[in-house]
Design a protein around this nucleic acid. Structure first.
Lengths: 302, 302
DNA sequence: CAATATATCTGACTATAGTCAGGGAATGGC
DNA sequence: GCCATTCCCTGACTATAGTCAGATATATTG
């Protein structure tokens, strides 16, 4: 087999060339490519300009100008958001914009078909499977873990997904805890941390640490986007939380979890956590774990 | 699993965004991206401007200007080729250009590392494997089969690789046949055909048809680039040759092959060819096949 | 040898994709 | 309530990546 670097470099060249040409051919025909991508990112529901900028990583002046151009073509309108931060602006598609988006969707499908259709069914399946794998792992490799406020938009987005998932997976359901100032504060410095994993501009996971007692911290709210599970993100989140814990002079980390969260159980067991007796009265917990941070972490990497 | 089109579209978006940013960051720093790619394509051995244009699919005026820019920076020099077509020009790297290429190589490696290094060894292996698969299958999907002259540069390139491979694989070696006007002509219209498969500007396979007798054609020179075997290209080449054969009113196709060419044997057997008695005195052949083109082709696709 | 085609080049022009500085309005932290 | 910061905007400017119409020299074909 060719070396890792040679394979990645060849992939980079092939894909950049092939997709570059095809995107230009299919999507860059009617409008400049950025405008098409922008229209796509705005989507049917609309977005805040701020989120657009984060996701597309564009200069704010440039983005403004692009929006003005799309407005001039009557494809989008920007309004003050009905609630919330009055500095931000909400971009939405007009009726004409929605029509244009459908057209772009059709072109995107045609592009995708043109990649797959020359192949036999067997080869096409292999290509699509490999593309899915590359997609997932590129997202995983682009993950950046940052400390944020639990009340921030990325954190709240993750938490909503987290709670929704618990409600589905716990056998007896799950009642989302009330968001009080106290619960927000416990995951904030100086005694706590809230970490969010982001990839290509989107939140894809979270995890939090709070103070339990002298030298003892507790991990809460560990969650990873289901589509990206199995790519090592939770392991990196866990390592990042443990790193924060050391900063906070935590020597022992505890956590509890539910029987139904099998990936989590597997993660903790393989990351040096050992099961201990019940240490709290969490009605949703059936397992309690502990890890001593002083112990050299020998079993942490798979 | 998500639908084919959705997966391909997501792949397109993720990869375009991620690689776009990284290429810009790593390779687009010192010089514009095209110049770096151009330098890479020129490579240590030099190329004809014509081949550069084919491979990079650039406007000839634009390419000229890029070459002038690189010449102004003393990175390349263009000269009359020592032999052959005096209209063409040969581009070669200067000493300084070679140094710059090494620098770009280093940056490409750094880019590749940055994609892989955040992942665990296990995930990295999976990513690299999937990238290799996508690379191969994208090449396969981009294949275009065209009729050319057997004396043309693409055909000759393929034939050289073909003969070299036979010399290695045949147990008793292989002596390349002399290229006479007669052998070149037999694969040309009106009674023969020479087909070349090209992908992203490079030849990746060939196959030829010649006249054997009344209503009988013979397939010769079937070859596919080893790196791309197993992606269905040979099957498409074979189908294209059969299509040409029908044009030429050929009703029966014959071919011979060597014991050691196991992929070829497998290909012919699974494409409706059945083994027949020796019909020629080819010293390198141990198997002779025949297919009747009038028979509806039921077993042609895998 | 004439006619046609090919390979490269130059000049003139355009489209796309930005960057950067700075300003007005709203917000959050103290 | 002040001050720094954030969000979005405009104006001015630049870099990159082309396109297109010829001109010139060489090859190829009949």
């Amino acid at each position: 087999m060719a070396s890792t670097l040679a394979t990645v470099r060849s992939f980079n060249r092939t894909v950049t060339q092939r997709l570059g040409v095809l995107n230009e051919k299919y999507l860059g025909r009617a409008a400049p490519l950025v405008e098409s991508r922008l229209l796509f990112e705005v989507g049917t529901h609309g977005v805040l300009v701020r989120d657009l900028r984060a996701r597309m990583a564009l200069d704010s002046g440039f983005l403004s100008r692009l929006l003005r151009a799309l407005e001039a073509k009557r494809l989008v309108r920007t309004t003050r958001p009905p609630a919330g931060d009055a500095r931000t602006r909400l971009v939405q598609l007009t009726v004409k914009g929605r029509r244009e988006l459908r057209r772009i969707d059709g072109l995107s499908d045609a592009l995708a078909k043109s990649l797959v259709s020359p192949l036999s069914k067997y080869q096409a399946d292999r290509l699509v499977t490999a593309m899915g794998e590359v997609d997932r792992l590129l997202h995983a490799s682009a993950v950046e873990i940052t400390e944020t406020a639990a009340a921030g938009p990325e954190a709240q987005w993750c938490l909503k997904r987290y709670y929704d998932e618990l409600a589905v997976r716990f056998p007896d359901g799950f009642r989302r805890p009330a968001r009080t100032i106290a619960t927000t504060r416990e995951f904030a410095p100086p005694t706590g941390r809230f970490l969010v994993a982001q990839s290509l501009g989107n939140p894809v996971g979270c995890g939090a640490l709070r103070h339990l007692g002298e030298g003892v911290g507790e991990i809460k709210r560990m969650w990873v986007l289901p589509e990206l599970r199995g790519t090592g993100i939770s392991r990196r989140l866990l390592a990042a939380i443990e790193h924060s814990a050391r900063d906070l002079k935590v020597r022992t980390i505890r956590l509890d979890t539910n029987d139904s969260l099998v990936e989590a159980l597997q993660l903790y067991r393989s990351s040096g956590y050992h099961e201990i007796a019940r240490y709290n009265d969490n009605p949703y917990a059936q397992h309690w774990f502990e890890k001593d941070l002083d112990v050299p972490a020998a079993t942490m990497r798979s």
